[in-house]
């Protein structure tokens, strides 16, 4: 006889099988969520209350958000951030997919060597290159331009993006690509008509990783942008910190506003992202 009941009890009881994991996860989430909640609470406090250490504001002031938006001209920073991040992510994904396709499916001399160079590029932090990059951008006339920032974000995003796509493409059987070539596809058609639709998980993964990194990027933007009209959100908000006084509640509200697009992008791509991770998009 089959014992169905026993199986179902086991399934139900699964969550209690690993209490240690649940306890650790709980504490980690507290550590991560506390600063977010603290900033959120600060964003609802009045100017006087900001230095009060109590967590909850006496009377929440949602109008802080409107005030921050208008006073800090967040619209312009927002536009710049979307332009720079959106463009850099788009181009990086496009170029990285093409490069990863070539690295995995088109054998050519020096492929391995070139790929090793790319991997080395991942280890170098952008902050270490700030001064030479500044000189370079000045030389090319791209200092204090959003285009210059886009170019740098693409350059720093490409290695990791190629690494992720390469790992994902390697798992796709060569025969599918060969079949497409025999069906009359050019290499670009193979990539966009055959590989791209099956790589949604990897595309979502790379998009989220790059969006997060570029949206929040600070050092390069700080060094390369001089005029407020070109500032991205992190620099724009940072510029509101005065030497002697600051409206911390408004800066907190602006920070929360700045974080919203990241949440939206993540929520929009969440299911694809999770599938991508499960399919090994993060394994190189």
């Amino acid at each position: 006889m089959f014992n169905f009941r026993k199986t179902s009890v086991n399934k139900k009881g699964k969550i209690y099988d690993r209490p240690m994991i649940s306890i650790v996860a709980f504490f980690i989430s507290i550590v991560i969520l506390t600063p977010i909640l603290w900033v959120f609470s600060l964003s609802l406090k009045s100017g006087r209350e900001t230095l009060n250490s109590k967590l909850l504001p006496k009377s929440p002031q949602p109008e802080n958000y409107v005030e921050a938006w208008i006073q800090y001209d967040l619209g312009q920073f927002f536009f710049n951030s979307i332009l720079v991040t959106g463009l850099s992510v788009l181009v990086t994904v496009f170029v990285a997919m093409s490069a990863a396709y070539a690295f995995t499916k088109i054998p050519f001399k020096g492929s391995e060597f070139l790929f090793s160079l790319l991997v080395i590029a991942i280890i170098i932090p952008p902050s270490a290159l700030v001064v030479p990059l500044l000189i370079e951008m000045k030389f090319f006339g791209m200092y204090n331009t959003r285009a210059g920032l886009v170019v740098l974000y693409i350059a720093f995003g490409l290695p990791i993006a190629i690494l992720v796509f390469r790992g994902f493409f390697a798992g796709i059987p060569d025969e599918i690509i060969e079949a497409a070539r025999l069906d009359g596809c050019t290499e670009y058609q193979v990539l966009w008509k055959i590989l791209a639709p099956v790589s949604k998980g990897a595309i979502a993964t790379v998009t989220i990783l790059l969006f997060l990194a570029n949206w929040n990027e600070f050092i390069l933007a700080l060094v390369l942008l001089r005029d407020a009209e070109n500032f991205t959100l992190p620099i724009g908000i940072n510029a509101q910190l005065g030497q002697y006084t600051s409206d911390y509640h408004l800066i907190a509200a602006a920070s929360i506003i700045a974080a919203v697009p990241v949440f939206i992008v993540y929520l929009g791509l969440q299911s694809q992202f999770e599938r991508g991770v499960a399919e090994g998009a993060l394994k190189a």
């Binding site: 059987p173 025969e175 599918i176 060969e178 079949a179 497409a180 025999l182 055959i194 639709p197 099956v198």
Partner: peptide
């Protein structure tokens, strides 16, 4: 035209 051992159908 070719038929492959593992069929190589486009999964999507």
């Amino acid at each position: 035209a070719m038929v492959f051992q593992n069929y190589a159908l486009y999964p999507q």
